[in-house]
Write a protein that binds this DNA or RNA. Structure first.
Lengths: 210, 210
DNA sequence: GTCTATATGCGGATAGAC
DNA sequence: GTCTATCCGCATATAGAC
């Protein structure tokens, strides 16, 4: 069959450990121990740690690309909220990527380029999204405003979950709150939202600022 | 005299190497080689790598705290621009701290707590700054808007320089552009700026969007 | 203060038996 | 596919001479 069961278990466990303990802290030995297989067996499935990381990175790219593809179908505030929510969930599922980005780029320069390319695609998708919101009258903004807003959205979705762990009062071990992150991102959009579309914003404000 | 010359050279060179190559990539051997001293001599001055990192982190804290102390004296857009500029310069001078934060927290849990405490102080300073801007009429915002704006400013100053390296077209090796970063941060404030204070914003827009 | 030499452990990766 | 055993190199840290 397509890929053995062990191979998939390795990828799942790697992802969980990278997310929980950091890319640098998870050695191939620890990984094998967690999987209850031998280091030799691990090497049979993935000749290098790099290959594991690259495979996970590709899955992350694929998942984000899927979300990017539907960017221009966002045509209302609640569409936007859902899109942001799904995006933060995806980033949280692979949170080691953005969180350990500097280390990752240093160790695997190939991935540094891929990360830049991914950011470029995210920017294009966010611009399409903002243009769609302007076209449907959900927000009112000049072309330049829309471009800056797209940049803000990409910046925020990329970095927010990493930043959140620095804010006191949030438990670093607890899973990230995608809803909270999405709400925060919406506040960036809020100054541009036309009066007819503010209802959903107020609903969310009540929900997350209680 | 207070601290030998070698000790200070170690700190300066460490900072430069950490910034340039990443905390994880700079071993004590590389550091000693760069300094043209022996690993044994390095160990004489700093028993562990951790002590070097902690000392640099403290300097970073001190430099930001100085800037935080003057937050409530910001009373015009050009004050704000200067304050942001100085802040980005400080963060850029110690850019390894925020860029390698995840690795740093994993290796030195003590510093994870200090980083949270630092973020808390930054948030308080940013809130004071926003309140000052509201009080002087430079911006118009509800108390809740001001709190969110403060959060946005801290988030941006903390993460922007790391994010910037992901945006294609910027050379990762080139030093960061504190002016560009400050301009970006100002766009967050711009929706709330009262009409009398927009002149400086337009001047900066012309300068950085040329 | 500075050196040479070295201890000790861990990390990635491999060889070869089963 | 999975194991045991092992190699090699690097990293932190140390000992002890000068």
């Amino acid at each position: 069959m397509a890929g053995s069961d062990t191979r998939e278990r390795i990828l799942q466990t790697s992802l969980a450990l990278f997310n929980a303990q950091g890319l640098a802290a998870v050695s191939t030995h620890r990984l094998a121990a967690e999987l209850e297989i031998s280091p030799g067996n691990l090497h049979y499935h993935f000749k290098t740690k790099r290959l594991i990381v690259e495979r996970l990175f590709r899955r992350f790219e694929d998942r984000l690309s899927l979300l990017n593809d539907s960017a221009s179908s966002v045509q209302a505030i609640d569409d936007l909220w859902l899109a942001l929510h799904l995006r933060f969930e995806a980033i949280d599922a692979y949170r080691f990527v953005y969180r350990d980005m500097a280390y990752l780029c240093g160790e695997y320069p190939t991935l540094a380029q891929r990360a830049q390319a991914l950011t470029a695609r995210n920017l294009l998708a966010a611009q399409a999204l903002c243009e769609s919101l302007v076209a449907t009258g959900v927000i009112q903004a000049t072309a330049e405003d829309a471009r800056m807003l797209a940049l803000q959205i990409v910046f925020t979705t990329t970095c927010w979950l990493s930043f959140e762990r620095l804010v006191p009062g949030r438990d670093a071990l607890k899973e990230a709150d995608a809803g909270m992150a999405a709400f925060y991102t919406l506040t960036l959009v809020s100054p541009y939202v036309s009066s007819e579309s503010r209802a959903y914003l107020h609903y969310l404000r009540g929900k997350y600022l209680g």
